[in-house]
Simulated scan of single mutants.
Amino acid sequence: MLRLARENPLWGYRRIAGALAALGYRVGASRVWLILKTAGIDPAPRRVEPTWSEFLRAQATGILACDFFHCDTVLFKRLYCLVVMELGTRRVHVLGITEHPSGPWVAQQARNLMIELGNRAEGFRFLIRDRDTKFTTMFDDVFTAAGIGILKTPPRAPRANAFTERWIGGLRRELLDRILIVNARHLRRVLATYETHFNEHRPHRSLGQAAPLRALPDPVEADIKVIRRDRLDGLIHEYTQVA
């Protein structure tokens, strides 16, 4: 019964009961319902629809995800930062920093991203964003003009954009909570350094411990020398090997 349900996601309880009867097992549809419910198998219509996490895994190579985060300086000014992640490779683009994230400014950051992506923009189908009013129609039009659909997350559902939310959380824990930011220029330099570290050095479990822009080297059996480089006054450690 469980095998029939898993291998035939369009079959309902009565259809499964009929298939069992053809095999010589006379079981009522209500009994089938009870057994499948106990096993945690949903009714037929819900079995054929992928979950949000399944959709993201299946479409990751064609999805961009963006979000805003803020940073308060020592002079009590709040700076807003816009970040975009390529879900397939986990590559991050820190697009810009401003005190006043107006609609035209946000749209210009989207145009800059499309220029940076170049021909690779054709490989993306969706952009995930929340319902923040900073994301105006001008912002959406930049992506829709390139054939990229806009997927808005439900209200108060940060898990729907979990990849960028997790990146922002890691950025705060690893860097912003450990350093005092003076002004926008200082924050740009700090974020540029962290972006390079994240894309070229930081290992990712989803990539088999590789970095978005750096594949893992071949296994080394001989002795090697490991060199550590500290960045941002030792807040970031990067390791390289020398034969």
Rank of each mutant, 00 (worst) to 15 (best):
G18V: 06
Q109W: 05
L75S: 14
H100K: 10
V220W: 12
T73K: 08
R111Q: 14
H197L: 02
T240M: 09
A162S: 14
I236F: 09
P158Q: 00
Y194V: 09
G12A: 04
A121K: 03
Y239R: 01
L95T: 10
R125K: 14
F69M: 09
V32Q: 06
R231E: 15
L56V: 13
L56N: 03
R120A: 14
W52F: 04
I115A: 11
L113P: 01
A211N: 01
D67E: 11
T38Y: 12
N119V: 10
P104S: 09
E49V: 15
I115L: 09
K77H: 13
N8Y: 05
I227D: 11
C71T: 10
A107N: 00
D140A: 12
L10V: 11
F68H: 03
L176Y: 03
I97N: 04
A184H: 08
G234A: 11
I63C: 07
R172F: 07
V94A: 08
G24L: 11
I227W: 11
A60P: 00
N119K: 08
F135W: 10
I236Y: 07
R231F: 13
G24M: 12
Y194W: 12
A162M: 00
A5M: 03
D223I: 09
E122G: 00
L180A: 10
I181R: 01
L56K: 15
I35M: 13
V84N: 04
F69Q: 02
P203A: 04
Y25W: 12
A162E: 03
H70A: 13
L213D: 13
P212M: 04
P50R: 03
D218F: 06
R3P: 06
V94L: 13
W11A: 10
A146K: 11
F139T: 00
T136D: 07
L151G: 06
F76I: 02
F76W: 13
Y194R: 01
K77V: 12
M1G: 04
L232A: 11
A222I: 09
R189E: 15
L75P: 01
R6P: 02
P101G: 03
Q209D: 13
T153H: 00
V106R: 04
E238M: 14
R231C: 05
T133C: 15
A192F: 11
A107E: 07
K152V: 12
V106D: 02
A44E: 04
L64K: 05
D67T: 07
C66W: 01
D132K: 02
G149D: 13
V106Q: 03
R159C: 05
E49D: 02
T38I: 12
G96S: 02
W105H: 06
V32W: 00
D140P: 02
R129N: 02
V48W: 08
Q209A: 00
L36V: 06
A215Y: 07
A21G: 08
N119A: 14
R111I: 06
I179M: 06
Y239I: 06
A65F: 01
R173F: 06
L176M: 08
R202K: 11
V74K: 03
M1F: 04
K134G: 10
F124N: 01
A184C: 01
L207C: 10
V142A: 00
R178H: 13
C81T: 13
R6I: 09
G103A: 10
L36G: 07
L175F: 05
I115G: 05
L187E: 06
V94E: 04
A110Q: 02
L36K: 04
L232N: 09
Y25K: 03
E195Q: 15
A21Q: 14
I179Y: 08
W167L: 15
R125L: 10
Q108C: 00
D141S: 12
